[in-house]
């Protein structure tokens, strides 16, 4: 029997795929298995609760209704913080169109990009105490620069010809911004938002540890103080999975839909 080259390639590809999937599943089994095995043998079960224990705790917490209220509190903070950071960042990005303001805010943006969230969390905690705008300002200070950089970058690539034409035809400032600048900036704004979210959720949880009496960070801290490792792990994993899901699936889907009319952006 003769075997064509095409069949050989196909067979090789199929083999490749099985190898990949088998090792992938094996990876899950080995890692989760080691974790489950190590709990209670290598370390005490209280120190390292296994995956089954974590799932049990998650169900327990869910039945107590704790999960819902904690997520609600944290998500409210995130949405508020990221929204304000977005407005401030975008306003700054638009201001830096002007060369003078670009010079003025240059260092502010560098500082905003490089300083870790922890610094702002502690400073605002001391200044504002438990007031709601303490954590808010920490989130804003940590994430605004990311939006600014994106907006400024978008402005740098503005279609100058179109704007010049609009100016020549005496189109007003408001209409010029509405019809040329904002549509051009939209993708940059969107990525700025996604970007600040991915950092925003981590900072929010950090602020809750220091200055909140509700939310996921608060629950994590309490669990740590009470030495309940299973609850610490459960909160961490729940929120981790949630944030990844939101970022990678929900936002990605929205973005793809939003920019369907511009294929070159939607494809990224």
């Amino acid at each position: 029997m003769r075997v064509t080259e095409e069949e050989l390639v196909k067979a090789a590809r199929r083999k490749d795929l099985t190898v990949r999937w088998v090792s992938r599943i094996l990876g899950y089994i080995v890692v989760l298995g080691t974790w489950e095995w190590a709990s209670g043998r290598v370390l005490e079960e209280n120190l390292l609760p296994g995956p089954t224990r974590v799932v049990q705790t998650a169900i327990e917490l869910f039945n107590k209704g704790k999960i819902f209220s904690a997520f609600e509190a944290t998500l409210t903070r995130i949405v508020l913080g990221v929204a304000v950071a977005f407005l401030v960042g975008a306003a700054l990005g638009i201001l830096t169109q002007n060369r003078w303001f670009a010079g003025f805010f240059k260092d502010a943006i560098t500082i905003g990009l490089t300083s870790p969230g922890l610094i702002w969390v502690l400073i605002t905690a001391l200044v504002f105490g438990n007031r709601w705008y303490g954590p808010l300002s920490a989130i804003v200070l940590t994430t605004f620069a990311l939006v600014t950089v994106n907006v400024a970058e978008g402005i740098g690539t503005l279609p100058k010809d179109t704007i010049d034409m609009a100016k020549a035809f005496k189109v007003g400032v408001v209409r010029r911004n509405r019809h040329i600048v904002i549509p051009h900036l939209a993708p940059f704004l969107f990525t700025g938002f996604r970007f600040s979210f991915s950092i925003g959720w981590k900072v929010t949880v950090l602020t809750e540890i220091f200055t909140a009496s509700s939310g996921i960070g608060f629950e994590m801290r309490i669990a740590q103080i009470l030495f309940r490792q299973d609850e610490v792990l459960t909160w961490i994993l729940l929120f981790f999975v949630f944030a990844l899901f939101f970022e990678k699936v929900v936002l990605q889907a929205i973005e793809n839909r939003f920019f369907r009319w511009r294929k070159e952006i939607a494809s990224t």
């Binding site: 190898v19 990949r20 999937w21 090792s23 992938r24 990876g27 949880v205």
Partner: peptide, 18 residues
């Protein structure tokens, strides 16, 4: 490729862990 598939998802999870 097998080793890569074995660890890939876990490395990615580690990468995103705060």
């Amino acid at each position: 490729k097998a080793v890569n598939a074995f660890f890939h998802d876990w490395v990615m999870a580690l990468l995103a862990m705060p």
